[in-house]
């Protein structure tokens, strides 16, 4: 009986240690995601259809490993541009899009999306609500360490044939602070 009790106590301690170890591992390697979004409204005058508007949602998220105390690692960047509800005469519209990526305030790397797609970006399949128009949805893996800041600075220009836009530009920036 005493032996059983002893074994039971040992098992409880072992399980507790195991759980704590697992938690530590999970917490220690946790990836964190930061997201930035911009719903840009492009107001235009169509030569045939008059006052028109397009609402485009630009999104970017950065998934990074923040387990280290000396530097973090930017592992994945996801970006998309969608329009909801889909515009009734939104065919043929064009977005010029791209991000400038920089680490710790250093020189930036161009991550062009449209019209030329940089090889950095891979197509990401996403499920969107019915009636949503998808311009693009891409992911990329920068795998860059940073101590102070990881930044993606996006610039977009929107165009539709026969439409004069009051302001065809939009921007979106995401900045992830490092451990320092």
């Amino acid at each position: 009986m005493k032996l059983h009790l002893k074994l039971f106590k040992i098992a409880i301690v072992a399980i507790t240690v195991l759980v704590l170890l697992c938690c530590n591992t999970i917490i220690g390697n946790a990836d964190t995601t930061k997201t930035a979004e911009e719903n840009a409204k492009f107001y235009g005058q169509h030569s045939d259809y008059g006052a028109s508007v397009w609402g485009v949602n630009f999104l970017i998220s950065v998934t990074y490993d923040n387990s280290s105390t000396s530097c973090y690692t930017a592992k994945e960047v996801y970006t998309s541009a969608t329009m909801y509800p889909k515009h009734t005469f939104g065919e043929g519209d064009v977005i010029v899009a791209g991000f400038d990526e920089s680490v710790d305030f250093g020189a930036s790397t161009s991550r062009s999306i449209k019209p030329t797609k940089s090889s950095f970006w891979q197509i990401q399949n996403v499920i969107l609500p019915t009636g949503t128009k998808k311009y693009y949805a891409y992911t990329g893996s920068p795998n860059k360490d940073f101590r102070y800041e990881f930044k993606e600075d996006g610039a977009f220009t929107f165009a539709v044939p026969n439409v004069y836009f009051a302001w065809p530009n939009a921007s979106l920036t995401i900045s992830v602070s490092g451990p320092k």
Binding site: D48, Y49, G50, H87, T88, F89
Partner: peptide, 12 residues
């Protein structure tokens, strides 16, 4: 204007 816009969208 609007009837043309909606018709165009549906035709496309």
């Amino acid at each position: 204007e609007a009837p043309l816009a909606v018709t165009h969208g549906k035709v496309i």
